[in-house]
Design a protein around this nucleic acid. Structure first.
Lengths: 234, 234
DNA sequence: GGACATAAATTTGTATCCAATATACGAGAG
DNA sequence: CTCTCGTATATTGGATACAAATTTATGTCC
């Protein structure tokens, strides 16, 4: 229950890298994870004071953390009424996936011609790690690796702002993916897609790769929307 | 020099809408404007205390405002070293415009078939206001109207997240546009473009409209990059 | 005279405290 | 019995105060 003790100073003594994250950073990361995992539900009001005692800090860093998540679009503030976890309409979920499609195909298109052998190997490594988490059914880790793999495919594009934007979008929809992904329906074709994406990159087949990518994201979107629609009437 | 007295309560007495913006909101808006206008220069460190006395508030709302601007990408925080105004490389400026091109053409494409007469009239109104600010040479107002006009063109698309994202991107590049726009070179063709965009929307000529839009943004990008390149060696 | 170490001062980050606002509950009137 | 108004409580927003960290300045040693 308790998230004790200043995650702040857990570095080994004598180790150089003195944990440079600020308290609000650490807390924001943790709360974000709790939102994405579904522990903090949609529309649920967030009590700053409660979180403050949980993390054993004052309300100030909590507020900053929440403000950050507000900026990321994961929670929403109402003046003098505090923060609640955002709730996206199906239309908005669809929009998020469409934006991802645009951004990712653009990035992939720019990236493929510039990918080095090292880039390809890095992707391969992530792909294999991801396949392990398929099998062990570790949804949380799979989600993280999935994001990371996609970003690795686009790293050679060297488009920091786009990548940052994409990361934000992923945070937005990750929650829904996780909520429904446990159903497992969609994961086999996705698995094949992921491999094919890397293959196309290797062969420098730009248009073919982008087509697969577009299909990949749009299919995920479609399946997700169907699952949401099914679950809606409760 | 002084930004006195709670911008908070400037509503007419008896008016219903009791200013509901929080202090950090108001302050963030003002600081944002100061950054966009170039008053706060690139790379310049921002002293929280100095701003606090300027606005006659404690450092707390200032911090929140800066955190918000940090999330918007206008300032960047370094732990224990405070905030500085972000500095974009030419490559990043280029990326911003490319992202705008993608987003805006997508929005325009979705919007055109759905625009009502009311939408068209609203655009017309903004267009005329913008032409006035061309002539009076009010750069600040022109920038705001330009943003608003573009958003109005896409309103019918009903894509709130995309519009929000676009708004953020506009904030990012607005500063550079304003810095160089005073040169006036580019404004005449842009003026013509703006009118043509509305025309195309009226005639429901989707592809033609998007082509003009893409050209419009890309040309602005090109001119801006040239101006930046010229000015670089100082 | 220069470089490193140490100390002072400025500045950020966090906590506690107070005020303002919203929600919840209860009493009284219609 | 229900609706409205008023009061009480809880929660957020902002200010003051304090601690940690960084940068600047000073002094000593080589």
């Amino acid at each position: 229950m308790s998230h004790r003790s200043r995650v702040y100073t857990i570095t080994m003594p004598g180790q150089r890298a003195v944990q440079r994250q600020s308290l609000p950073d650490v807390i924001a990361n943790d709360i974000r994870e709790r939102i994405l995992s579904g522990e903090l539900e949609e529309g649920m009001p967030i009590r700053q004071d409660a979180l403050a005692v949980e993390y054993d800090v004052s309300r100030m860093p909590i507020r900053e953390a929440l403000k950050r998540l507000d900026a990321e679009g994961l929670v929403v503030f109402t003046t003098n009424r505090g923060a609640t976890v955002v709730k996206h309409s199906p239309a908005e979920v669809e929009e998020i996936f469409d934006l991802r499609t645009m951004l990712e195909t653009d990035l992939f298109r720019r990236s493929i011609p510039r990918m080095t052998e090292a880039d390809l190997i890095h992707c391969e490594t992530l792909l294999e790690a991801m396949e392990v988490s398929y099998d062990t059914n570790d949804v949380g880790q799979w989600g993280a690796l999935n994001s990371e793999y996609h970003l690795a495919l686009y790293a050679a594009a060297d488009r920091t702002l786009s990548a940052e934007l994409l990361h934000r979008l992923n945070l937005q929809c990750d929650r829904y993916v996780r909520m429904h992904l446990s159903v497992m329906h969609m994961r086999e074709p996705a698995r094949a897609d992921h491999r094919k994406l890397l293959e196309m990159a290797r062969k420098r087949l730009i248009e073919e790769g982008c087509a697969i990518l577009e299909n990949h994201i749009q299919r995920t979107k479609q399946q997700l929307l169907e699952l949401i629609a099914e679950k809606k009437p409760d």
